[in-house]
Amino acid sequence: MKLRDLAHSRTGDKGDLSCISLTVYDLADYEKVKAHVTADRVAEFYAPLIQGTVTRYELPQLGALNFILTRALGGGVTRSLALDSHGKCLGSALLDMEI
């Protein structure tokens, strides 16, 4: 199944960092999502985009994971030549990940 069947995401930016959260619809799926969506797997998913690293923070009581991607936005919203200079669309793609 797709990650989109189990969780939803929101993306924000801070300078050249992208902040992508994942929240499960049902707390019962948290451990499964946590086991599959590791920082390494997220780094691999975004490898063509980011030049930095991925760190994962866990919030089990909310069923949520928070990923911080460094050197991810072409220098950040003010400098980036990308159309989506905030990288707001990044999290939507992650939901395509196979679980």
Binding site: S9, C19, L62
Partner: peptide, 16 residues
């Protein structure tokens, strides 16, 4: 809880 969780984590780095 879903809308508020998304916003709680919005543009924060380390939740701690």
């Amino acid at each position: 809880t879903a809308t508020v969780t998304e916003q709680l984590l919005y543009e924060i780095l380390d939740p701690k």
